[in-house]
């Protein structure tokens, strides 16, 4: 039945039309949660404001549990949903670089757009910086390519790696996240 685009219910034009609608909702909730404000986001790294962790992982949990059960109930064909390919080394290095940039900028690509949309000039600055960063990557691609293409592992899930059923993986991640939320609450209370 779904994904609609993969089962013939929605064509390419429909998919493109859905994009801004989905984006609108995304931007809406990000702003609602306060993720359009760089000091709030940066507080994550100083353990004063754990909003980023709470929003990200409750979103992850919701989508993960929702996807699992919709798949189990036959509503969603999960293996028709695009699963990004894993390239372990460049994603580790890129992730680390991204984390440093995120700390300094205080906003990530999506939230920088929210910030800019709400009038924050620093949001605009991050956007400009990212366009430059992408351009630099393209310019340096010839040298970066060996790292970029290293360690391909295909479209692989955590549950494929350790060979457990996906439901067990879902349960494990949920447990970790809930523990994380409890710890986050403690940390924030202690900080007051």
């Amino acid at each position: 039945m779904t994904p609609l685009t993969e089962t013939g219910w929605l064509g390419a034009a429909g998919a493109l039309a859905a994009a801004p609608v989905i984006g609108f909702a995304f931007g809406w909730f990000l702003e609602r949660g306060g993720l359009g404000s760089a000091p709030k986001l940066a507080g994550q790294f100083y353990l004063t404001d754990l909003t980023v962790f709470k929003v990200m992982f409750s979103a992850l949990l919701t989508a993960m549990l929702g996807a699992f059960w919709l798949d189990r109930l036959g509503v969603l064909q999960l293996d028709l949903v695009y699963l990004p390919e894993t390239f372990a080394l460049p994603q580790a290095v890129g992730g680390a670089l991204f984390g440093v940039g995120f700390l300094v900028a205080g906003l990530c690509p999506g939230t920088s757009c929210v910030a800019a949309a709400t009038g924050r000039r620093d949001g605009l600055g991050v956007i400009v910086g990212m366009l430059i960063g992408v351009w630099l990557f393209n310019a340096a691609f010839v040298w970066v390519e060996p790292l970029y293409s290293a360690t391909p592992m295909g479209s692989i899930r955590l549950t494929d790696l350790v060979d457990i059923p996906s439901g067990a993986g879902v349960a494990g991640v949920t447990a970790l996240a809930l523990i994380g939320f409890a710890v986050a609450g403690r940390i924030e209370r202690a900080d007051r």
Partner: peptide, 9 residues
Amino acid sequence: AAVLAGAAG
């Protein structure tokens, strides 16, 4: 969340 996850496992 815990119930959904436990049931999933």
